[in-house]
Design a protein around this nucleic acid. Structure first.
Lengths: 206, 206, 206, 206
DNA sequence: CATGAATGAGTGTTCATTCAT
DNA sequence: TATGAATGAACACTCATTCAT
């Protein structure tokens, strides 16, 4: 007895739900977006959605997991062809600078921002968020910085942990402000100056 | 014939409601905090609260207005005794660095952050937020930067608007991350480095 | 120790409240009109209104009492100068036909109609309404009809009670429809035909 | 995939709600009747009712629509077997005279009366009511009158529009008074006299 | 007698979740 | 697995009435 529907089919359904949910959450915010909204957007029924996800929170969490994973898969993929820390860091800046322009990214940032905030209140989300922040985001940049220190590209007396923290605080801050303010926000200039300043911290000065 | 209770009494009641609301919103988020929560915290009845505020949104907006006002009143008051731009900017950094330590400030930042996000979705909040961002926050730092340029403290070729934008993006980013991450977050170091970098942008280099 | 305020003053306050209430009830209906609406219209405070009336229902009832009384006082006053039943009946028709034109009368009819309906549900109002219907409205027309029978103006074999009932059903029906439909309603023609028909019932035919 | 419950099932649920609502509205009036009352009477949950109707107003409006439709469907059905205008008009009178006796009809009239009144205040109800009054009620009787004029049954110089107006004013007035006053009201006699009078208007006199 | 702040039960409405089909 | 009707606990908000001043 083989399964009635293929794994692939099920994966596609899940993806459809997550995509629809992202749009709904971006539009109205997590609390105000309803399961019915997601049904309407995905063309699926309520019962179906609950076959794939346990709760509304579950959709939220899996959505954020997918996004984070996709994000870092993308970086890892490209890093295969980059051999020094400076260029890797520049690639990060470049990626965020360019992706910021898309409407989809704005949506993602709004939902990401809300998820971040809600992590201060919902226990389950908090532990997921903290774990990811430490083990994925921060570690990722720390690794680059350590690589740069080892190779002599960056100063030896920097604290990779603090600078990684700063990096993400700035990047998130910029993306979020841009997502909220839209065209009013000079994200391109801000990103360039930020890159300049971060490298100012990393580079040897006399 | 004459008002039965003094204006002062009424002001105090409003303040009590706003303080209670701030705590509730910080704890649960705006959407999840209920009017009943605010009643419980303030010891007031539902009806009473609605004598002072039209809607839950109204409480939210007036709360944010009060906080912004108090914030800038504080800065203005202190700036009377400071005569140069460099020290003014340093005072801003110092204030945020120090205030960050309090639990109340964390609450404020969480609610502020949520307000900021929700401004991308609720029209009424959006216009209030944008107006305040431009005319209060950004203008405030622009004025300091222009003063510094005029006095020769800062480089002549900087763009005060962009640097003001950067300043607030960073400060908000830091405060928000600290509010979420708590003691994990090296806010003190981050603030010092940020101050260093901003001044790096402003100062003449050879 | 004489009363602090005169009886006249108090009467005027009550009248002011009743007038305001009539407008509010006409505009929104009894249930939807609030004490606050009446306060706003009358310029009086809530407490004051409750000094003059026990409950909202009380205002309603006294309002309807006043109106009925004023109505029949007006008829009685004019009947002093009319010596036959035919003319009295014609005067009734004429009065309703003419008064229908005023906006105030429309308001009155709407409230009157609602009162009539609510009398089928609220016990206290029911007994008041029934008593008034029998002892004031019906009796009034019965007396005219009996006068007309006695004087030989009307047929001897009519049932004054039924015809009085019919009279008020028609008059109320017309006034109510006019109040609802407004200028669409050909009240003038309808009143003339109704008068014609009622007299057709009363008059001797061969 | 396919609907889980039949259309018929859903129609029955709607009917159950409308029937329950009619009783509740008749008992307490529209404003005072609560959704909870309707739940209690129908044995359905609040959420269920809101699956079938958007708002309380919606229930009200659909209830009145159904009743009007049922009413005129009944007349149309019977008119197939009646070939002259006189008998059609007599059939209308007969129907109202007989139906008046039922408790259900009283309820209907009370709610109908309230709907009529509220149409003077609620915009949405007003347009529905006016449209129905003109295009259903009035037109229906006008058609009969015109048929009678054409066939020579009625006088040629009558105004069908005015007489139709009069007809409904009287019929509504009688039904409403009967619904309020109950057994006190000699509806049978009143209906006979009214029929007599209307035909007096229509018939040729010398 | 006048005032209007306080009260809190009650209202219409929403929505995540369940479950029979 | 898919469906969508059913549920009922919540929620924001209202309003007649009271009562201290």
């Amino acid at each position: 007895m083989s399964p009635i529907v293929s794994e692939e089919y099920k994966e596609n359904r899940k993806k459809l739900i997550l995509e629809s949910a992202l749009k709904c959450f971006a539009e109205k915010g997590f609390e105000l977006a309803t399961i019915d909204d997601i049904c309407a957007r995905s063309g699926m029924s309520k019962g179906s959605i609950y076959n794939y996800f346990k709760t509304k929170d579950d959709i939220y969490i899996q959505l954020m997991n997918e996004q984070t994973k996709a994000n870092f898969d993308y970086f890892q993929e490209h890093f295969k062809t980059i051999s020094n820390a400076t260029e890797k860091l520049q690639f990060l800046f470049k990626t965020y600078r360019e992706v910021s322009l898309t409407e989809d990214f704005k949506h993602l940032m709004l939902v990401h921002g809300e998820f971040w905030l809600s992590s201060s209140r919902k226990k389950e989300i908090r532990s997921i968020m903290l774990e990811r922040y430490q083990n994925v985001y921060k570690s990722f940049v720390i690794a680059i910085l350590e690589e740069g220190i080892a190779s002599g590209e960056f100063r030896k007396d920097i604290d990779p942990s603090v600078i990684s923290t700063i990096f993400w605080t700035y990047v998130d801050g910029i993306c979020l402000d841009y997502a909220v303010l839209g065209t009013e926000y000079p994200y391109c200039e801000v990103f360039r100056k930020t890159e300049e300043m971060i490298f100012f911290l990393l580079m040897k000065r006399d």
